[in-house]
């Protein structure tokens, strides 16, 4: 595991960020809005940043805090000329949206940059003893995050604070872009995706697995942040979760419907999910909801040798078939 990173230092980060800003400055006059990131309520958080005027560009900040997948906003802005800053993983969502004709290529301007990974806030929280409510200072380099919280200074190894998807990332550079600021790191799509965590979980006994999900989903509040943060949950206001006819789910607060919804989400993403992890990141009660989607992707890979979000022209496997399926062995009775 692990992504051999370019030994660029902070200076390079600043350099490509300036280049990126120049790119946006050039393109903005033709665009309604460019979406990037900027600082948020404390030094440890960033927030999506909608740039409409030139002066908005100054606030743009690219850092390991740029966690949000901004592709989520694209279908809602259809019809507008939109610029979007993408990490490698985010760009794969853009590819999916293009593939599904949910956005028009000519309306979208994509700004790429070499992504060295984003943090997992829960990991930082754990490293800080379960509390990130009083962050006074935060600075990051390639190798460490320095945080001051409640008069205590922490120096955390960046590699350990990165989101899981980043430590096994195979697409650090945008797979599709109109502008690319900085030096590409190099994508490695031909390497196998890492599903070790899924496999470990599958080795548990049936009651252990079933019980695990019941326990985890018990605290679900059905806010559907997982769904709304998902760039590929494109039904938006017409989701099966709230439909009365068909009546997939009840409104009762019960663990069955919460679990069922996650299966619905995973299945509706079969062959579409790019594992950007927004569902899990958005969950306000930290339920590990990404694993269902990883499992689905693993099955799609094993059965159809297909990976979503790489080729805008590809046909997703569940929208096609072969008379003879090489990797499906039917049961003999």
């Amino acid at each position: 595991m692990g992504n051999p990173r370019s030994e660029s230092n902070k200076g390079d980060q600043v350099k490509f960020q300036e280049e990126l800003k120049d790119n946006i400055r050039k393109a903005l006059p033709e665009l309604d809005v460019v979406i990037g990131w900027c600082g948020s309520f404390d030094p440890l958080h960033a927030t999506p940043h909608f740039m409409r005027r030139e002066e908005d560009i100054d606030k743009l900040e690219i850092s390991p805090l740029s966690v949000h997948n901004l592709a989520t906003y694209l279908p809602g802005l259809r019809g507008k000329k939109v610029g979007i800053v993408v990490k490698g993983c985010d760009s794969r969502s853009v590819v999916e949206l293009l593939q599904e004709n949910l956005i028009n290529r000519e309306d979208i301007t994509i700004f790429g940059f070499p992504c060295t990974g984003v943090v997992d806030q829960s990991k930082i929280k754990k490293a800080l003893g379960g509390h990130t409510g009083n962050i006074e200072f935060c600075d990051m380099s390639e190798s460490v995050i320095v945080i001051k919280s409640e008069d205590k200074a922490y120096t955390l190894p960046m590699a350990e604070m990165l989101a899981d998807k980043c430590s096994s990332c195979r697409y650090p550079d945008a797979v599709i872009s109109d502008y690319f600021a900085g030096e590409k790191i190099g994508n490695k799509g031909e390497e196998d995706a890492d599903y070790a965590a899924v496999e470990t979980f599958e080795n548990l006994s049936v009651p252990e697995r079933f019980g695990y999900w019941l326990k985890e989903f018990d605290r679900c509040i059905r806010c559907y942040a997982c769904r709304n943060a998902c760039p590929l949950c494109v039904c938006r206001d017409h989701c099966a979760a709230e439909s009365r006819d068909p009546h997939w789910l009840s409104q009762e607060n019960n663990v069955r419907d919460k679990l069922m919804f996650q299966v619905i989400h995973a299945y509706h993403l079969a062959g579409r999910c790019t594992e950007c992890g927004e569902c899990q990141r958005a969950c306000p009660v930290d339920i590990p909801v990404l694993m269902f989607k990883q499992k689905m992707n693993k099955e799609i890979r094993d059965t159809f040798q297909y990976e979503a979000g790489v080729d805008p022209e590809a046909t997703p496997p569940l929208l096609s078939f072969k008379m003879k399926e090489e990797n499906i062995t039917e049961k003999v009775w």
């Binding site: 809005v33 927030t47 999506p48 909608f50 989520t72 906003y73 509040i221 059905r222 806010c223 559907y224 942040a225 769904r227 709304n228 943060a229 938006r236 009365r244 009840s250 409104q251 009762e252 958005a282 306000p284």
Partner: peptide, 28 residues
């Protein structure tokens, strides 16, 4: 529209809010 540009329309804010009291009524 500017204030809501980045909003995802999820329910995290309302459901975690100690003073949000709106409800739905449904038959099952």
């Amino acid at each position: 529209e500017n204030a809501a540009a980045k909003c995802l329309s999820c329910g995290a804010c309302t459901y975690l809010c100690p003073s949000c009291y709106c409800f739905n009524i449904t038959d099952e």
